[in-house]
Amino acid sequence: MSDTAPTTPFDLDAYLRRTGWEGVRRACLDTLRGLQHAHVRAIPFENLDPVRGRAPSLDLADLTAKLVHARRGGYCYEHNTLFARVLETLGFGVTRLLCRVQLGAHRPEDRPRSHLALQVRVPGDPQTYLSDVGFGAVGALLEPVPLRTGEEFPGAGRRHRLVHRPHRGPLPMWVLEAHGAGDGGGWEAQYAFTLEPFEHADVEVVNWHVATSPRSPFSRTLYIQRLTTDAHLLLHGTALTETRTDGTVTRRELTGEAEIRSVIDTELDVEVPDGLTLPR
């Protein structure tokens, strides 16, 4: 298992250069908002390692080399493991949460806990926050939201809310919903979770399963997304979807490996690893 203890050296300066964050380095809500927004705009979501049969390393040095120093991205376990270390380095409290993705599911229990998100505590603030830089969907959070129900949270042009849903467990079930992220245009559940804390060892096991299981979509199909100033780009297999901030959606089918590589390199800003065979 990887060593993610807080004493492991971490190059915060390099991370901040990668994300372009130039704000104050203290554990406050403005810093949390700014860091999350900068991270999701700077570092793409991608699953190129699982597609080529490799479980991505969650070792801090490997994450730094890949997501900070290389022109690469990662999926939720990589993004949020790295972001958790950034926040802990700055003095935030972080609890790792494993969530059940709800997109395309009828009930929370229909999906395993396969998504990593973070519960964040800001020193001196009794409110805790849901923070997430690794959800590969157009309904992803761009800024943290308070862990409370009964209100809508606008964040960087997107609308979210948290609701409670009945379930069989002893802890309340929270559901993150996004408005206008689906074809229906209304509120759509993104993922469900309880506030039970999980450890890095738990995340390692889920990461390995999702990356290597032949039943996992991440081991079989390309998912690459990039957020620009005015659009969300998603490559799913050979289909490229652009969702603009005004709600306009355009889709096009890519033909041939050369075009797919070109789009990944130029439009999605991800370097394709050597030896990876892409769909044709």
Rank of each mutant, 00 (worst) to 15 (best):
C28Q: 06
E22P: 00
A38S: 14
A70S: 14
Q36D: 04
D62S: 15
V40F: 07
R41I: 02
L58Y: 10
C28D: 15
V24G: 12
P6F: 01
L48T: 06
T7L: 09
L16F: 09
H79T: 09
A38R: 12
C76R: 05
A55F: 05
D13S: 13
R25D: 01
A55L: 03
P44F: 00
A70E: 13
L87N: 00
A27F: 00
P9C: 10
E46L: 10
L63Q: 01
R18C: 09
R41V: 00
T31P: 10
R71N: 14
I43L: 11
R17F: 01
I43H: 01
T31V: 08
C28I: 04
V51K: 05
A14R: 12
D49E: 15
T64I: 05
E46G: 13
Q36K: 09
G74M: 03
A61I: 09
L35R: 05
R54C: 11
C28S: 13
A84V: 06
E78W: 07
V68M: 08
H79R: 07
G23C: 08
A14I: 02
T8I: 14
A55R: 12
P6L: 03
G20C: 06
G20T: 11
A61D: 13
V40W: 08
G23V: 03
Y77E: 00
R25I: 03
G73E: 03
H39Q: 13
P56S: 05
P56E: 02
P6A: 03
V86T: 08
V24T: 13
L32H: 04
D49A: 15
L58K: 07
